[in-house]
Nucleic acid binder design. Structure first.
Lengths: 190, 190
DNA sequence: CCACGACACGCAATTCCTTTGCGTTAAGGT
DNA sequence: ACCTTAACGCAAAGGAATTGCGTGTCGTGG
């Protein structure tokens, strides 16, 4: 899923991939995204530009690849003891990460270099996975839980829409309000 | 709002802008987006590439400009006599347009060539405007109406999220279901 | 363990896009 | 009708993207 066909998972190919990804993150931190070119990245990574072009196609797809990797959650959502707390905490953290300038940039990169929609699909798959972890844990406790799609449609989607299309008006309270709406209005009563 | 500073609204500048926009749409229809380059567009438009670079900066920003123009609604939402019908009809049409391959491409272009978020903000402003037209008409009739943000958060946002991140599973029924959720669960009772 | 086939990479030349300086033309205001 | 200023055309220079060919390395099957 990472680069084009992702063949040859070990050895030199893997080294090149790690090196290039690291170069992208370093240069992005140094020069910002303006002035970020394939030859520059290749030089930092210690490879030739043609290697990058052959593996990733162009700069957009490379940035999209890096962005998706960076958007992958590194740990399962916290377990605070109740569905309400878990959802609120996770939603607030999710919004915090996505609404930051860096987060927005990663999302836009993931969407931009995405001919077939697989990168974007991967991003939502990450969110689905996290939400389902929370819901499954709550069900295990015997709590009544909403469907995954209810949470995706009425908590995740509104946050992402505002992040992408309506910057400003975003704070942790908004995330909590969306979770509250799910609890008081959208969740089937027992 | 259209190009950079949009000074000199008439005469030659306006002709160049129209010509370039038309060239983009023609070439996009002919060759698709691959193989779409600034020199190609400039040649079709009858201008030199440097003119395009100076006005739009690069290909991405030009495509974003064209996309936003194309996403602007060309007419106010239909008046079918009731809030429920108006919202359902508009949401279904909106989803139909946005979920098409061309629609998705326009949205991605508008997001991609968007350093400061103004293009994306314009897109949501279009939707807000359409929704408020519908809500104002319903209020005029004496109907109880939800807030604009309720519709944006729980009708528009879920559709756009699925369009961008979860392709597939999109049909007119989904739009109607979201409107139904607003009516039966999210709208304050009289 | 070794040899074979296949893929990825480096190198370098070519092509094309992108940038920039300068002169010219046209728009908007007085 | 003139004057100021912005936008455009032209052309050259600089840099990025593409591609053919040879070499090294990974994975596999004998």
């Amino acid at each position: 899923m990472s680069p084009r066909p992702a063949v040859r998972p070990g050895g030199r190919s893997a080294r090149v991939q790690r090196s290039v990804h690291a170069a992208v993150q370093e240069l992005q931190a140094e020069h910002g995204r303006t002035g970020l070119t394939v030859p520059l990245i290749a030089a930092r990574a210690g490879v030739t530009p043609s290697t990058v072009y052959r593996r990733w196609g162009d700069l957009q797809e490379l940035l999209a690849d890096v962005a998706v990797e960076h958007l992958r959650p590194d740990e399962p959502p916290a377990d605070l003891g109740s569905l309400r707390e878990d959802l609120e905490h996770w939603a607030a953290a999710f919004l915090e990460e996505m609404s930051s300038p860096a987060g927005r940039a990663y999302i836009r990169d993931a969407l931009a270099g995405d001919p077939d929609g697989s990168n974007a699909g991967q991003c939502s798959a990450y969110a689905v996975e996290q939400v389902e972890t929370i819901l499954a844990r709550a069900a295990q406790r015997g709590e009544h839980v909403p469907g995954t799609d209810v949470v995706m449609d009425h908590v995740v989607a509104p946050m992402m829409y505002r992040v992408l299309f309506r910057p400003g008006l975003l704070d942790a309270q908004y995330a909590r309000d969306l979770v509250a709406t799910v609890f008081y209005r959208l969740m089937p009563l027992p």
